[in-house]
Design a protein around this nucleic acid. Structure first.
Lengths: 337, 337
DNA sequence: ATGAAAGCGCTAACAC
DNA sequence: GTGTTAGCGCTTTCAT
């Protein structure tokens, strides 16, 4: 039988109330008493029961994380795992645990939503944008439940953290242009995603400003096989394209596979740039130039915001945007010294 | 204010007890009543408070997962994210949530241990082997706390799931030998890890049986930079080595980086094989031959075992071992049709 | 089939 | 400074 606050109280010849005060570091306990109880707690290796405490204070000390099904062998991007790690660490530093929910389908999202959110299992939520539908988001907002999104959500304006997708895509496109590419194709995710739209915007801006025509934009689900198919389309449309900007880590695998199959050499036959970096990218010959996102910062900022929200405070900023960095490698033709 | 069982009871003109029975699908409730209460629950969107229920039944319906810090951009392996996904899914299917703890250091492990395990936050634990020290494992066993390890733990004999590391390494080594390699170096993890020892064993067996000398075994932490350094050592020791067997996904990045730097071509200059597959491996030219582990199965089996343990049952097998599969690509010189 | 009531382990308000 | 007590929302006997 596990040891409870009552046991400690009896053994220490004090009341449960006093023990509770000691546990929570509250004032109003004699120095000697406190020391004695603390010693007892340590000796008996007592830990307060989380459910009981949760019931009493109406807090779970858990924060829920809802992200897409990741770690799947079919995903070559390390984005979500990295984010999860950052969030978990930051939460742990604040004495919060992570309740995880990975969602593959719409129903998963909904069931995650029900089990995790309801029943006060969590005090707040970090949600991978694109995971929730508008209705659910609206419901959360309506209930005034604390949550922050990672990545800009649908249309709904709520607290979120994100990278500067427009800027990142723009910088990369400018880099490509500077290297002499004029006919650049953009391979990107589903058109409905705000992040996709922003990346397209950045691409379009850079192209237009350089007097080039951003006509080759290919939307494609984040799915290797489909990316490969779309890549083939790009290659075979004979539009004189010299560079492909794969605007998401998950798409790069598909492109690389096609390059391999069709013996396309980077950067001479075709240049390749990625939005999202991966440790293996620098192992390719040439290395794959990529827009690198500060995922740790995203995760930490998300948790910071969430804690503010959970504390009933109003964060100063509704969104927190981080800059990206281009990691120049050889895949686009840069002259690497 | 959130709606409680009391509200439902009053609105339904029944007692809380009856509502409780309905919620939990227990018998002893009239058909009409049950229907009525169910309807009410749905209408009011009622979800029982997890803490309260946990307190009453002494179960959290959470299972804890303790794995190494993953998703880190410095890790090129998808092993832990994939495992986490599988575990989460399987748990969700049984109405259990995942409480995550990623541990970077020894202290992290200990704090994870304290916060998660104690206080009945979780009813059981899935632990990435190599995460816990012997003392903690012993403590868990002593307390008779249900847990299963993924990967064989230190010396302690407890329930675990794993792949056949000996067999996998052996198969890969035989593959290498069949392709004509005689002087093969094994680059592997820390010597203290049971999985490492098993892989070394498999390698040694295959070499010895072929009349070859398994003398080139290099132990190295799972850390890209160190792997690169060790790889250079292998290359420069001029022992006439023709193939490197990197016995963990995390090491492959280091090797590839060196290959790139030193312009070593696979498989002619040096062959490369990996233990652990990754979606990007097939994108390299040539593709990287790898031992593929059935990570999903591992995760599911771990949860299955854990549920048995949690149910007070004694699983029929103390360990569950899965076979690996070699994915032959071009990096070792195979003649790909 | 259903209600009443005790109790799970803790916190918090109030007393002294 | 410390004890007492009343819940928190649920399950679970035990009556009826």
């Amino acid at each position: 039988m596990a040891i409870t606050i009552k046991d400690i109280a009896e053994l220490g010849n004090v009341s449960k109330g006093t023990v509770s005060r000691v546990i929570n570091g509250e004032p109003g306990v004699g120095e000697e008493t406190r020391r004695r109880i603390l010693k007892l707690i340590k000796e008996l290796d007592y830990q307060p029961n989380a459910s009981a405490r949760g019931l009493a204070v109406k807090r779970s000390n858990n924060i829920g994380v809802i992200i897409p099904h990741t770690g799947n062998y079919s995903m070559s991007s390390a984005y979500w795992p990295a984010l999860l790690t950052a969030v978990t660490e930051k939460a742990a530093a604040n004495d919060y645990n992570i309740l995880l929910s990975t969602a593959r389908s719409e129903e998963d999202v909904d069931s995650a939503y029900r089990t995790i959110l309801r029943g006060k299992r969590v005090d707040g939520l970090v949600i991978g944008a694109e995971q929730f539908g508008d209705e659910q988001l609206v419901e959360l907002m309506f209930k005034n439940f604390p949550f922050v999104m990672v990545g800009k959500g649908p249309d709904i304006s709520h607290y979120y953290v994100d990278v500067d997708n427009v800027g990142g895509a723009r910088k990369m496109t400018e880099h490509l242009i500077k290297l002499g590419h004029k006919n650049i194709a953009m391979l990107t995710g589903p058109e409905t995603y705000p992040s996709v739209r922003d990346r397209v915007k950045g691409f379009t801006q850079a192209m237009t400003e350089a007097g080039l025509n951003p006509e080759h934009i290919y939307y494609c689900p984040y799915w290797t096989e489909k990316a490969a198919l779309t890549c083939k389309e790009i290659i075979h449309n004979k539009a004189g394209i010299t560079a492909i900007f794969a605007a998401a880590g998950d798409l790069v695998g598909g492109v690389l596979k096609v390059f391999k199959e069709e013996k396309i050499r980077m950067p001479d036959d075709l240049a390749l740039a990625s939005f999202d970096d991966h440790p293996l990218f620098e192992c390719f010959v040439p290395g794959i130039t990529a827009v690198s996102q500060p995922i740790n910062l995203l995760g930490e900022a998300a948790v910071d915001q969430l804690f503010l929200l959970m504390g009933g405070k109003v964060p100063t900023a509704k969104k927190i945007i981080f800059e990206t960095e281009i990691i120049v490698r050889g895949s686009c033709g840069a002259n690497l010294s």
